[in-house]
């Protein structure tokens, strides 16, 4: 079977000869220059966005640290206060310690029962 292109290969040759006259160098240079420019622009844009993001994050850091320190201090203070209260109660009346122990054991028993 004759291939479709063979019926007009003479015309294809004419077109190809016309196209061969086109100088490739300036065109290739333009295309590759465009590609490099786009890549550079993308890198600059990404860098700028990344830098802006990092700056915003860095600005939030002191606030975050102070919040964390505050939380840490509050926890420590409550634990210290609780132990102070417990020792104070025991010195005033040891019965409070017994009451506290019974309540704690009851709560533990209920919790264990509920889980099973």
């Amino acid at each position: 079977m004759m291939r479709e292109q063979e019926t007009y290969s003479d015309l294809t040759d004419l077109f190809t000869a016309e196209d061969r006259k086109l100088d490739p160098a300036p065109f290739v240079q333009d295309v590759m220059g465009g590609i490099r420019r786009k890549a550079l622009m993308r890198r600059v844009l990404l860098g700028a966005v990344g830098l802006a993001g990092a700056s915003v994050a860095a600005m939030q850091l002191p606030k975050l640290l102070s919040g964390w320190t505050g939380l840490d201090l509050a926890l420590t203070k409550s634990v210290v206060d609780a132990s102070k209260d417990a020792s104070l109660l025991s010195t005033v009346d040891p019965l409070w310690l017994v009451v506290g122990g019974v309540v704690t054991l009851s709560l533990l028993a209920i919790t264990t029962w509920e889980r099973t």
């Binding site: 190809t16 490739p24 065109f27 490099r36």
Partner: peptide, 18 residues
């Protein structure tokens, strides 16, 4: 690889421009 792509452009530019 930009070099590989430049070679592709060189090979096919006449056809595409035409």
């Amino acid at each position: 690889s930009e070099a590989a792509y430049a070679e592709l452009v060189r090979r096919h530019q006449a056809r595409v421009r035409g």
